[in-house]
């Protein structure tokens, strides 16, 4: 184990870890508000390490949805990770073996992926593991603290904390929607679709999957992204 590389990764991951802590606080508060206990909420974060997927999963758990609805929802919402793992795989090169890959895959979130890809030096396993360390503890610890806070605070405080999660989603979506018309189109379509589906209770549990596939599908057909350079 190359300790210097590991430490370098940990340092790079610090800001992401802090950010995750505050955001997952909202997830923890929302989970207990919906009736999931503190330990289960913490376990969800510790085993999934993804914001949107967990949040959709929580909704399905509360709705007592079927197994296939859960699998389908995770597949669609987390599909982007497949693309990131492919890119990371190419960046890591052939010399990194199977076992480290199994570990690195677990930590491949949007932010950790971005940090890994932006590194100038070659990627090493200790560096990648270091990168994931603080975000993992931040995300899991934040959920634990948020869930604890949510279970002791009065109801209106709890709902205010839960809204933090929506705030985070808004903060992720608005800036690219402002700059890129196709993203704005995807957002508008998803919004309209989601409001319509809300009126059809039969589709309620697969509403996120349905709206995601519809909006992303229409926009992919109308506004295909530019051909990328081979390196990505």
């Amino acid at each position: 184990m190359n300790f210097k590389e590991y430490r370098c990764g940990v340092q790079r991951g610090l800001p992401v870890g802090l950010g995750y802590f505050s955001v997952s606080f909202g997830f923890g508060a929302m989970a207990v508000a919906q009736g999931v206990d503190v330990w289960a909420a913490t376990l969800i974060s510790g085993s999934n390490l993804t914001s949107a997927g967990q949040f959709a999963g929580l909704t399905l758990i509360v709705a007592a949805a079927g197994l296939w609805e859960m699998v389908l929802t995770m597949l669609v919402i987390n599909s982007r990770y497949a693309l990131m793992s492919l890119a990371l795989s190419q960046r890591m090169g052939e010399r990194i073996g199977l076992l480290p890959r199994l570990a690195v895959a677990f930590f491949n979130t949007d932010e950790i992926f971005a940090l890994a890809m932006s590194r100038q030096e070659p990627l090493t396993v200790p560096f990648l593991m270091g990168l994931g360390t603080l975000p993992f503890f931040g995300w899991t610890g934040g959920t634990l603290c948020g869930a604890l806070a949510g279970s002791v605070l009065p109801g209106d405080m709890g709902s205010a904390l839960g809204v933090m999660l929506y705030g985070m989603f808004i903060a992720i979506v608005v800036p690219p929607a402002k700059k890129q018309k196709p993203v704005l189109a995807a957002v508008a379509l998803a919004m309209v679709c989601s409001c319509i589906v809300r009126l059809l209770p039969a589709l309620d549990r697969i509403s996120i999957v349905l709206c995601t596939v519809a909006a992303a599908g229409v926009c992919a057909a109308l506004f295909p992204i530019p051909e990328e350079e081979e390196s990505v």
Partner: peptide, 24 residues
């Protein structure tokens, strides 16, 4: 690839609206 590019934005939006009106 285009589809996967638009997925996060579509899905985060579908999760937020209209649910945000019913959470509080």
């Amino acid at each position: 690839r285009s589809f996967l590019y638009y997925v996060p934005y579509a899905c985060l939006t579908a999760m937020t609206v209209p649910a945000i009106f019913f959470t509080t």
